[in-house]
């Protein structure tokens, strides 16, 4: 098991290194003198300072080494367009909002999706089943920005503000008021995916012989669902939660823009449009890290929860 975790962490490091290196060199070889020219807005002294610290007048190989050294010390980069602004500060300021939005959206998606999916599977052909199928299919067909726009037009304006966000000191009522609509917009894709997945997962499990055995023991429907269906049906959802988190991150680029949420996603898009290269690099690395980290955690979690997967890992990679 430890070996498996180490292997996964190894992948994380390698993947991150590849992304980082590729991005670094792509940014460096940007057409023309774009990289340096964007620094013209900076005061002379700040620019010189930057050049010295990041080795900007040295050959690219050395710059890369310097960059890696700084990175290992926890410094992600410094802005070319705003004097004295470091990527670390930006992440500290901006990430909490993105994280809160992301976590709330994933949680809402999971809870609603799982509940709807189970209910639908257990009541096949019932209205709740049709409702779930309807939500599932609309959720993957309507982009979240359309959904968000509709919410802004028709649900917001009264109790729910159209734009804005909360700080850690906000009251609970404010928390709800400001985050409800963005969370719902960001969660809609997740609700759709999870409920659909859950529905077929439960139906799958119900077809198993061990459910028949459980029935032949005389367990009630409720007991069978609680003891034999739930765990077996929910466990595989872990495999799709990780990629979904990517969806929430990308979705948040859009949602943060639409609701004017001071999150990292919005900053990322702004820095791309403003061609602030060190910040693009820093946020790319950070986003990739979050993403890969989630994938690795989910892989490990899955192995811990499902004894079959655990066995596959212990016996070797046969069961991949």
């Amino acid at each position: 098991m430890l070996k498996y975790i180490l292997k996964k962490v190894g992948y994380l490091v390698v993947t991150l290194w590849i992304i980082l290196t590729a991005t670094f060199f792509m940014m460096y070889t940007m057409p023309g003198d774009a990289t340096q020219s964007s620094m013209k807005v900076l005061p002379e002294a700040v620019a010189a300072n930057l050049k010295a610290k990041w080795g900007l007048d040295k050959p690219v190989g050395e710059q890369y080494v310097i960059y890696l050294q700084n990175l290992l010390q926890g410094e992600l980069g410094e802005s070319y367009t705003t004097p004295g602004l470091t990527a670390n500060t930006i992440i500290e300021q901006r990430f909490p909002a993105s994280l809160q939005l992301g976590l709330q959206a994933v949680a809402l998606g999971l809870v609603l999706g799982i509940v709807l999916g189970i209910l639908a599977a257990l009541h096949r052909g019932h209205w709740i089943d049709f409702l779930t199928i309807f939500i599932a299919i609309l959720g993957v067909s309507i982009p979240s920005f359309v959904f968000a726009a509709l919410l802004q037009k028709y649900a917001a304006g009264g109790y729910f503000p159209i734009v804005g966000w909360v700080t850690s000191g906000s009251s609970l009522a404010d928390q709800f008021k400001y985050t409800a609509l963005p969370t719902l917009s960001a969660a809609i894709g997740g609700i759709a995916t999870y409920s659909r997945f859950m529905r077929s997962s439960v139906l799958d499990v119900l077809n198993n012989d061990y459910i028949l055995l459980a029935r032949s023991k005389g367990l009630s429907r409720f007991q069978i669902i609680r003891r034999h269906v739930m765990r077996n049906a929910i466990t595989p959802i872990i495999t799709i939660v990780a990629p979904q988190i990517a969806g929430v991150v990308t979705g948040s680029f859009v949602i943060e823009r639409m609701f004017s949420i001071p999150g990292l996603g919005r900053y990322y898009v702004d820095s791309v449009n403003g061609r602030d290269y060190p910040m693009i690099l820093a946020t790319t690395v950070f986003f990739s890290f979050i993403f890969i980290f989630c994938m690795v955690v989910m892989d490990i979690l899955y192995a811990l929860v499902d004894p079959r997967v655990r066995k596959g890992i212990i016996e070797g990679k046969k069961a991949r």
């Binding site: 992948y11 994380l12 390698v14 993947t15 590849i18 992304i19 590729a22 991005t23 792509m26 940014m27 940007m30 990517a246 991150v249 990308t250 680029f253 990322y268 791309v272 061609r275 693009i280 790319t284 986003f287 990739s288 993403f291 890969i292 994938m295």
Partner: peptide, 19 residues
């Protein structure tokens, strides 16, 4: 493939379109 799967595609798209 395992390494590629680990790369968030939105980030790739953004980086490539910057490039």
């Amino acid at each position: 493939v395992e390494i590629l799967v680990g790369i968030p595609y939105m980030v790739v798209v953004i980086i490539v379109s910057v490039f």
